[in-house]
């Protein structure tokens, strides 16, 4: 059994030689290209990550900026709206007031006008009435001076007169 643990040191020499050559050759042919590829990739990944991170930070900054601007704009819009509301209120009040005033003026002037017209009409009416009444009276008088009646009347008067004063009797 001691053959199991009896080393043949010639083989030790072979092992060292073999392993040493392997280290030398494989370092050149295998590990160096492998590590260059791996390092290259790791560098690319790191580069990608940093660029992605900076891009993200930039985007976040931009977003914050835009948010601030948006909030500012919102405030501005609110303020403007409030301003517009107040000024329109004022304008409205002013307009109503003016309208009321002008309406009152119009009412006043129309009253005056109406009064003047009324007076004018009254005066005119009075003239016309006077004229009409004179004309009517004239007509009435004309109507009263009826020819036949007048003739009858006058013959009666004449008869009466002839009777009283027969010498003045005409002709027959």
């Amino acid at each position: 059994m001691e053959a199991l643990i009896r080393p043949e040191f010639g083989l030790t020499f072979w092992t060292i030689l073999c392993f040493g050559l392997l280290v030398l050759v494989l370092s050149k042919t295998a590990w160096q290209p492998l590590m260059t590829a791996v390092n290259e990739r790791e560098r690319a990944i790191k580069h990608d990550r940093t660029s992605a991170e900076t891009a993200r930070a930039e985007a976040e900054k931009l977003k914050a900026e835009l948010d601030a601007k948006l909030a500012e704009l919102k405030g501005e819009i609110g303020r403007r709206m409030e301003e517009a509301r107040v000024s329109s209120e004022k304008e409205k009040d002013l307009l109503i007031e003016e309208a009321r005033k002008s309406a009152a003026g119009i009412v006043e002037s129309s009253k005056k006008e109406i009064e003047a017209q009324k007076n004018e009409a009254a005066r005119e009416l009075r003239g016309k009435v006077a004229e009409l009444s004179v004309m009517a009276a004239e007509r009435i008088l004309m109507a009263k001076l009826d020819h036949k009646a007048s003739a009858d009347l006058s013959s009666r008067y004449l008869a009466e007169l002839e009777k009283e004063r027969p010498e003045l009797r005409l002709g027959n």
Partner: peptide, 15 residues
């Protein structure tokens, strides 16, 4: 199994 040989492992240990 070369690694089951004391001479071989001795060589590796020496390196």
């Amino acid at each position: 199994t070369a690694t089951g040989n004391l001479a071989v492992t001795a060589g590796l240990a020496l390196t």
